[in-house]
Write a protein that binds this DNA or RNA. Structure first.
Lengths: 162, 162
DNA sequence: TTCAAGTAGATGCAAACGCATGAACATCAG
DNA sequence: CTGATGTTCATGCGTTTGCATCTACTTGAA
């Protein structure tokens, strides 16, 4: 009898998790993270990919880190001169985060080495067709992202009429 | 012109990373982690899936955590009565980790609720065919796991002959 | 304008993590 | 048997994380 759709989904998710953990461990073991930790690189990469100035909460979408942790990570990167934080003229609460020249350079250097390892690992495991499939599947999974509003989103109902 | 194989691999990996982050955030936001953190659940789940007694370093293969961190996480789980650690009679260095009845029960309870969220998210994003593809791809990615030995594994070459 | 509600980011603090290292045991060549 | 080497897990310690909370600012309705 065929697996239920729910079972199928859970098996697929577990498979993704396992692959993620295995590859992350493998990449983490590579000797290229001496100037930038993987998380720091993740932030710099996200900033580099995104045109230029970026809000902290935007960054948070892509990085698996709590808002305070991300805030402090950016602190450290700024202290090291890799990221520039400027107040956002359009929103007094917000920041405009951008790579400095040094930051961009370091991201490129580490990124280049990392890409080699990624290509080696993924190419060894998958066919071109599978890589294309994975890319498409990942995109679809990430797209349903905004998460379901917690329970039925009440239409701003106030207290009971007093 | 077609993307290079290396580019293809990196795009696929980035897609996987993005999907992983998005879904993890979404699952983490669910109100089911009051008795067990996601990492703790991960450990209990791994123990539950694996027949019974498990070595710490085996656990480490599946969990994205350093060995000391895992060691202490298991400490806490043992203190809470969810995991049992016994010395391994076959290897004086090792441990035999197993779920207690309470641990298994808690894993089932949380796991049941979590599976619902996983199924909802994945089913909404993928077709049956895609879920099967993802499972297969993940398996292949995780299989190439043992990582290439750092550089050419020298055959235990000693110093230059003196 | 005024004020309630919402949002962006920072901060205090305890918990958890990673790195380096240590202790105990296993393994194997000589 | 003995000593060198490798493996498994634990521990010290400084750093980083998450949770709860705070401040500053924006938004929108009255």
């Amino acid at each position: 009898m065929p697996r239920s759709r729910s079972r199928l989904a859970n098996d697929a998710w577990e498979s993704l998790l396992t692959a993620h953990a295995a590859l992350m461990k493998r990449f983490a073991a590579e000797p290229i993270w001496d100037e930038l930790s993987m998380r720091e690189y993740d932030v710099l990469y996200t900033l580099a990919k995104h045109g230029e100035p970026m809000r902290l909460y935007e960054l948070g979408r892509g990085v698996l880190l709590s808002q305070p942790a991300l805030s402090r990570l950016v602190d450290r990167l700024a202290e090291r001169g890799l990221v520039e934080r400027a107040p956002d003229p359009a929103d007094g609460r917000g920041l405009r985060l951008a790579l400095t020249e040094t930051g961009r350079e370091q991201q490129r250097r580490v990124g280049g080495r990392h890409a080699v390892d990624v290509a080696r690992a993924v190419n060894a495991a998958l066919t071109d067709e599978e890589m294309r499939q994975l890319e498409a599947i990942g995109r679809k999974l990430a797209a349903c992202d905004p998460a379901p509003p917690p329970q039925t989103r009440r239409p701003n109902r106030q207290e009971a009429p007093r």
